[in-house]
C-alpha cells in the first residue's frame, strides 16, 4: 500500500496552482490528503502529477461578512470547527464538522477538499446543499461561482472542469431566528453516515413552519436536498402528521441500493426517523434561542 510514482509540485500561489492544473490534465490536487492519500496508497488512483496546495496560503481563511461565512478551500476542518465567528454566524457548521471523521482527520482534512471530493455520505456537501451555499472556483480563464445545487453531479464527481480549483466555500449564515440540527447514524463513531439529515427551520408567529431547509447525506449518489419534504412542512405546525408526511417524502429520495451495512428499506426508515428527529431538535433549539 504505497503510492505509485508521481511528479510533485508545491506552487506558492493559487495562480501558479491553476497554471499547473491546466498544464497537467492527469494531475491530482492535494489538499489535506485525507481522502486522496488512502486512494493513492491503495493504488486505486495513480495520478501522474500531484499539485500540493499547502503553500498557497491565500486559500486558508475564514471570513464572515454579508450574512455569508466564506471559507478558504485550504482551511483545515478543525480550524473552521473552532472558529468563533463562524460559529456565531452559523452554528450548523460546527455541528456538521463534529460529525466528520475523527478530530485527527479534521486536523488535516480541508473544507475545500471535502467539498471537492463530493462523497455522497459526507457531511459538508450535505450542509452546503441544505444552506444553498456555493463555491468559488478558479481556472485559467478566471473565477466563477457554482451553487451547491449545480456542483454535486454524482458519486465523487463535481461539475468542476478538470483544470479548475476550488478557492473558497460559502456557507450562508443562519440568523438567530433559525433553528438547526444535523443528525446522522453511523456504524462506528467517525464513520461515514449510513444516512444523515441536516435541517434548518424558521417558525412564524403562529408556530407554523415559515422556512425550512432539509438535506440528506448517505442516501444517493450526491447529497440530496429534500425539497418535497420541505414543501410538506411549509405553513404547518410540526405536528405528528406533518412530521410523518415530511419523513415519508424524504424517504422517497433514497436511491442507494441494498448494501451490506444498509438495505434500501432500512435507509428509508432511517431517513424518515432522522428527518423527524432533526426537525424536532431544530425546533427545540429555536425555542431555546428565542426564549
Amino acid at each position: 500500500m504505497k503510492p505509485s510514482r508521481f511528479e510533485y509540485f508545491a506552487p506558492e500561489s493559487l495562480a501558479e496552482a491553476v497554471a499547473l492544473r491546466d498544464a497537467h490534465p492527469g494531475a491530482a490536487v492535494l489538499a489535506g490528503g485525507q481522502s486522496l492519500l488512502p486512494i493513492m496508497n491503495f493504488r486505486l488512483g495513480r495520478p501522474e502529477q500531484v499539485i500540493d496546495l499547502r503553500k498557497a496560503s491565500e486559500l486558508a481563511f475564514v471570513r464572515v461578512q454579508n450574512d455569508v461565512v466564506e471559507v478558504g478551500a485550504m482551511t483545515r476542518q478543525r480550524d473552521l470547527e473552532r472558529d468563533e465567528g463562524a460559529a456565531r454566524a452559523n452554528p450548523l457548521i460546527a455541528e456538521s464538522l463534529r460529525l466528520v471523521a475523527h478530530a485527527v482527520i479534521r486536523n488535516r482534512g480541508t473544507v475545500g477538499g471535502s467539498i471537492a471530493h463530493a462523497d455522497p455520505a459526507a457531511e459538508l456537501p450535505a450542509l452546503l446543499s441544505c444552506l444553498d451555499g456555493s463555491v468559488e472556483v478558479a481556472g485559467v480563464r478566471g473565477r466563477r461561482r457554482i451553487s451547491a445545487g449545480e456542483l454535486f453531479v454524482f458519486h465523487l464527481t463535481t461539475s468542476l472542469e478538470p483544470n479548475e480549483v476550488i478557492t473558497s466555500v460559502s456557507f450562508p449564515a443562519l440568523e438567530p431566528s433559525w433553528g438547526w440540527s444535523f443528525l446522522e447514524v453511523t456504524r462506528r463513531h467517525g464513520d461515514f453516515a449510513l444516512a444523515g439529515v441536516c435541517a434548518a427551520l424558521k417558525l412564524d408567529g403562529d408556530r407554523c413552519v415559515g422556512q425550512v431547509r432539509l438535506a440528506a447525506c448517505g442516501i444517493g449518489t450526491t447529497p440530496v436536498r429534500l425539497s418535497t419534504a420541505e414543501e410538506a412542512l411549509l405553513s404547518r405546525p410540526l405536528t405528528e402528521k406533518a412530521l410523518r408526511e415530511a419523513g415519508r417524502a424524504a424517504a422517497g429520495y433514497v436511491t442507494a441500493g441494498d448494501e451490506t451495512q444498509a438495505s434500501t428499506a432500512y435507509r428509508r426508515q432511517l431517513v424518515e426517523a432522522l428527518v423527524r428527529r432533526s426537525l424536532l431538535r431544530a425546533a427545540a433549539r429555536l425555542e431555546r434561542r428565542t426564549s
Binding site: 485525507q34 500531484v50 485527527v104 488535516r108
Partner: peptide
C-alpha cells in the same frame, strides 16, 4: 495506511496527524 487505525499518529506543529496520510 489508510487513516483508520491511528497507529501512525504523530504531532505536526502540535497537531495529531496521520503520518500514513501525509507525504
Amino acid at each position: 495506511e489508510h487513516g483508520v487505525c491511528g497507529c501512525c499518529t504523530v504531532l505536526v506543529d502540535g497537531r495529531a496527524t496521520r503520518s500514513c496520510l501525509t507525504l
